[in-house]
Design a protein around this nucleic acid. Sequence first.
DNA 1: AAAGTTCTTCCACTGAACGGAAGGGGTGGG
DNA 2: CCCACCCCTTCCGTTCAGTGGAAGAACTTT
Lengths: 248, 248
Amino acid sequence: MGATVTSRALDILGAFDGEHRSLSLTDLARRAGLPLATAHRLVGELHRWGALAREPTGEYVIGRRIWQLGLLAPVQSGLRQAASPFLHDLYGTTLATVHLAVRDGLEVLYVERLAGHVSVPVVSRVGSRLPMHATGVGKVLLAYAPEEVRLEVLANLTRVTAYTVTQPARLLEQLRRVRAEGYATTGEEMSLGACSVAVPVRNGDVVVAALGMVVPDLRRQLPRLVSALQVAAHGISRTLAGTSVQWK
Amino acid sequence: MGATVTSRALDILGAFDGEHRSLSLTDLARRAGLPLATAHRLVGELHRWGALAREPTGEYVIGRRIWQLGLLAPVQSGLRQAASPFLHDLYGTTLATVHLAVRDGLEVLYVERLAGHVSVPVVSRVGSRLPMHATGVGKVLLAYAPEEVRLEVLANLTRVTAYTVTQPARLLEQLRRVRAEGYATTGEEMSLGACSVAVPVRNGDVVVAALGMVVPDLRRQLPRLVSALQVAAHGISRTLAGTSVQWK
DNA sequence: AAAGTTCTTCCACTGAACGGAAGGGGTGGG
DNA sequence: CCCACCCCTTCCGTTCAGTGGAAGAACTTT
């Protein structure tokens, strides 16, 4: 358990999340489960280094140095940069909300997002996580994930909306089709009024990310969207293969 | 001196930079100035938490969790998001490389950048730092910086190109004009063949960032560029004032 | 003015961090 | 094949940095 100094410092950083972007010392101590005096010292060190910054209000926020470090992460520097122009093109031609996501453990992690102005209800945010079985990008990533991951996810299909697929057998069948046809779809399985299509992005033979799109309705334009997605995905793959940079 | 556990762990993270995005354990130990065994333990903890990830090669890279934390930083979540649409507009109408930067200590920190396809030699990258006296955004930020910062910067005007302003008196005069006229310019002071214009971005009365543009030549279109920049800057200010979110 | 807050400082005790040393594992070259 | 080299991992007795209760400062609220 978290008894080492380092893990405690990290727990303090971990106290921040999307809903808690600025926290007082006392909050930090509480959320990290540390005595106030201990938190005070650790926070002081983090602040001195630049991992935390202080707002005019006296509350702490994540510092610029962490932000800069984050820019060096492989998701950011490799995948994201390779994908960026293609995402813009995609958005330009379809005007739908466009997503790039990777698998992180048993969840989908959104790496990039271009949102349309008049958009369908979209839950994701860059940096946020969603369950794999209820999203288009999630199904793609799950279809190509290692067996063990698939089993663990299948064992725990939580319901999100009335349309969420919660029967393992049905999802397995869908995943088979994803592999066969090269794309995945969802229909209001994550949020009502939102459908999605997604395709895999490869680096060599390995599926490293998924590229997806959220629209109010799929029926009419599915083939067109799938091919637009596939064009973009191929473009990204080619860029990735070109840059011999590390990225994962 | 770096003697506390926390600072050592942070030094390990600090070993990464733009040129060193993936490092072996031994490299990390060397760069952080730590005994191998110590580095090994700390790296293990950072890895377990998700601050570091491991490439297939065995080298370490910045992990996704740090990347996610970085997205929570005020630069990112407040300023950057508020500015994003305006930067796109600016880029759309001028097709020049567009920059958003803040002051970090005695340097300029680039927060966002939209690069043109056929672009002039531009040195900056998102997350990188440049000297204040040789860049357009830097001069803006310096013009509105606290007296003490200005003095320290003026005392150390390093030459970058033949055109870099290195005389304190001359720079001071330029800064006065920046405040009077509301924009700053440079002419090949950072890299040959590149000129720039920049304007301040305010939140309330406080100058919190600078918005700049890099072009091959200024003479002809200066007024047009300045007004485009100012429109965008005002838009950003209004957005910032609107969101009562913290940001700095 | 009293009773809350939250933040900061202090310091004696103690157990977590330290790091030298030894042991695996891979690679290369003689 | 064996030895030299490099990088990584584990071990363990010593010691020094981290700990956290407590006291008090600085503010706010009642």
